[in-house]
Amino acid sequence: MKLNATQLTRQLKDGLAPVFVVSGDDPLLTGETADQIRHACRQAGCEERLVFHVDRSFDWGQLYDASHSLSLFAQQRLIELRIPGGKPGDEGGKALIAWLDTPPPDTTLLVTLPKLDGSAQRSKWAKTLIEHPASRFVQIWPIDAQQLPGWMRDRLAGAGIQASPEALELLSARVEGNLLAASQEIEKLKLFCNGGVLDAQTVQEAVADSARFDVFNLADSMLKGEAQQALRVLHGLRGEGVEAPVVLWAIARELRSLANMAQDLARGIPLERIFASQRPPVWDKRKPLLSKALQRHPAQAWEAWLSIAQQADEQIKGQHAGSAWDSLARIAVEVSGVRLKL
């Protein structure tokens, strides 16, 4: 069953479903939606939480074992299944369908995955996740440029701040569509607002130009094959205090897009048709850049870097050992064409 954000809130008030699926590409919106479900699980008494990360070597027997094992610590359990590549494969699809057909008692399954493309949505496993009565499928839609001022107005209002139209326009221009950066700027603006009113002058004084341009210069450098330049930009961003989630957001978005395009290319679909099928379609000036990157690496490589990006996300959250910046640097140089010896 498909749900929007409002319907999800009502569903969680009524009780937990056996399975929740959160699908989308924006890290802030998908993360907050998953957090909302986790909070509802805790409120319902879930004290035990298991997290599985699906990559090419994932053993789907682990999910079966988890569904048939008895909880030793709590009556309610939350099991998270994270699929950064967006496709569980034949074995994974069968495992998900089997779970839905016979959901284990006192257990909630939370599946997170990127936005499903057209071919994925037509697959049997995806249709089952979307349509099965035991499942609640939440599609996270991106906030476009026209919706961004309204989204920020509501976000600021939730923080007790009333913003002028001029302030919203200026703030929108500064963050350039990066919702994670927008959320961080709103948190800073709470310290600068007098009387809960935000005007353009306050934004001008308090909000530095978004690092998004430099972050996307990083993505362009690695796609061009300029490893040293990519590392210089990455180290510069870190030195300027740019948060790792902002950098990860930009890099992961490129990786997901290129992973899907590489899979289509491997199936023999012409590159121009692949570019035209993207939403939004690839700009002409970016086509040579993406073509070069796709010719340099096979589909498997893009999937491997998505797994490293997932690892960086876990490192940011303290769920995996090591430095997220080291993981980001590894992605940058390997996408540039330099293979590291690990």
Results as ranks from 00 to 15, higher is better:
Q62V: 00
Q139E: 13
E166Y: 10
L218G: 00
S71V: 00
D144W: 13
C46E: 04
D326L: 04
L231S: 06
A120K: 14
A40P: 04
R286L: 13
D264Y: 10
A173W: 05
V111K: 05
I83S: 01
L294H: 06
L170P: 10
L237M: 07
Q295R: 14
L63T: 07
S307K: 06
W141M: 02
R330C: 08
L81I: 09
L265Y: 11
G241P: 06
K285C: 01
Q11T: 12
N178D: 14
Q263E: 13
K13F: 00
L289Y: 06
G89A: 08
E176F: 01
H235E: 03
A329L: 04
N4T: 10
R238E: 14
D90Y: 02
S327P: 03
A95K: 08
S57Y: 02
G24Y: 13
A182R: 11
D35M: 11
N178H: 09
P281W: 11
D14V: 04
K127C: 00
L63W: 08
K87A: 11
G93K: 03
L148G: 00
Q229R: 15
Q315A: 06
L170E: 14
M222E: 02
M1F: 08
A266W: 03
L109S: 02
G61Q: 06
W99F: 15
F20L: 01
E240T: 01
D59W: 07
G160F: 10
A266S: 15
D65W: 02
V111D: 00
S221K: 09
L116E: 09
I79C: 10
A266K: 09
K285V: 06
A312E: 01
A211R: 05
Q162T: 14
V175S: 05
G337N: 11
L8W: 12
L72E: 07
L294I: 01
V54W: 15
A250G: 15
G89N: 11
I79E: 08
I186S: 09
A44Q: 03
I143H: 02
L180G: 08
P281R: 11
K190N: 10
L148N: 08
E131G: 05
Q310T: 02
